[in-house]
């Protein structure tokens, strides 16, 4: 970790901006209740207020403060995406590393299951499952985590298989080391760099995915403040955008604020991942 901090000092500008943005989002999400001027779901003013004090980004169709909802949205949307990605990772790397190391029937079974799950597009699968489970946060997180873990499985299995052909694994096996030691001490340190990069990419994907479901009205449900649903709620306003006056312009741009918040975070993560991939591939040779 400290090595990455040292490297960060010499990182390209894009990566530094990325890290800074991610930090900003993290701070916003953690300190949301203190940062937000108004409560998350309370009606605090007239509907559709323009961008002016005290509602710096106006109010929505119910008269809730948009700035506050954006700040709480960071906590809800990013938080849930993070939890989902972590779950997907735990599931995917554990099964992937095990499948590669143990091999045999476990590998065959896990790989076939993943093949089938991946043969169905994730969005379609998620929609199918959500029809059954209904739209609850727990269902959402579990469904996406399981679907996404298939990709983590494939990657970690492939990476581990590459590592397992190395002679140092043979040395450990000849010494009589157990499975746990081989996975933890021999395989995992070498798989770390690609898995870290993959974590970033998977997070982006999950984050966009949850936002997309919310945008479709099938993700996080009101009154929870969430960027995807905020885009959905204010979507129609875009056709009223015109730049003749401040009020009219800010009114029409309402859907772009949450959508932009999503886009910016994904972009920041992607910029950092690009750099991590570059650094880790460079360190190898």
């Amino acid at each position: 970790m400290t090595r990455y901090l040292v490297l960060l000092r010499h990182a390209p500008l894009m990566a530094k901006i990325g890290v800074l943005l991610i930090a900003l989002y993290a701070v916003t999400a953690i300190f949301a209740p203190w940062l937000a001027p108004y409560p998350e779901a309370a009606v605090v003013g007239p509907k559709y207020q323009p961008w002016a004090a005290p509602h710096w980004l106006g109010t929505d169709a119910l008269g809730r403060d948009v700035l506050s909802r954006l700040i709480y949205g960071a906590r809800n949307t990013v938080g849930i995406a993070l939890v989902t990605t972590v779950l997907a990772f735990l599931l995917g790397t554990t099964t992937g590393l095990l499948a590669a190391t143990v091999g045999g029937w476990f590998d065959t079974l896990a790989s076939r299951v993943v093949d089938v799950l991946m043969a169905i597009p994730s969005l379609i699968f998620a929609l199918l499952i959500l029809t059954i489970t209904g739209t609850s946060v727990v269902a959402l997180v579990l469904v996406i985590a399981v679907l996404d873990s298939t990709r983590v499985f494939r990657l970690s299995r492939a990476v581990a298989q590459g590592i397992l052909t190395m002679d140092y694994i043979e040395v450990a096996r000849m010494r009589g080391e157990g499975l746990g030691w081989i996975v933890r001490r021999e395989v995992l340190p070498n798989a770390a760099a690609p898995l870290i990069a993959e974590f970033g990419l998977r997070f982006c994907f999950v984050f966009l995915f949850i936002s997309a479901l919310s945008f479709l009205g099938l993700g996080l449900q009101p009154p929870t403040a969430d960027w995807g649903s905020m885009v959905r709620d204010s979507a129609k306003l875009i056709s009223f955008a015109n730049f003749s006056s401040w009020n009219a312009a800010t009114f029409g741009l309402a859907p772009l604020l949450p959508a932009g918040a999503i886009a910016l975070l994904t972009l920041a993560v992607n910029m950092v991942v690009d750099w991590v991939l570059h650094v880790s591939s460079g360190l190898k040779d």
């Binding site: 999503i262 886009a263 994904t266 972009l267 992607n270």
Partner: peptide, 10 residues
């Protein structure tokens, strides 16, 4: 690729 589809669309 960082942008959600609907952001591009809007």
């Amino acid at each position: 690729i960082s942008f959600p589809e609907y952001f591009v669309a809007y």
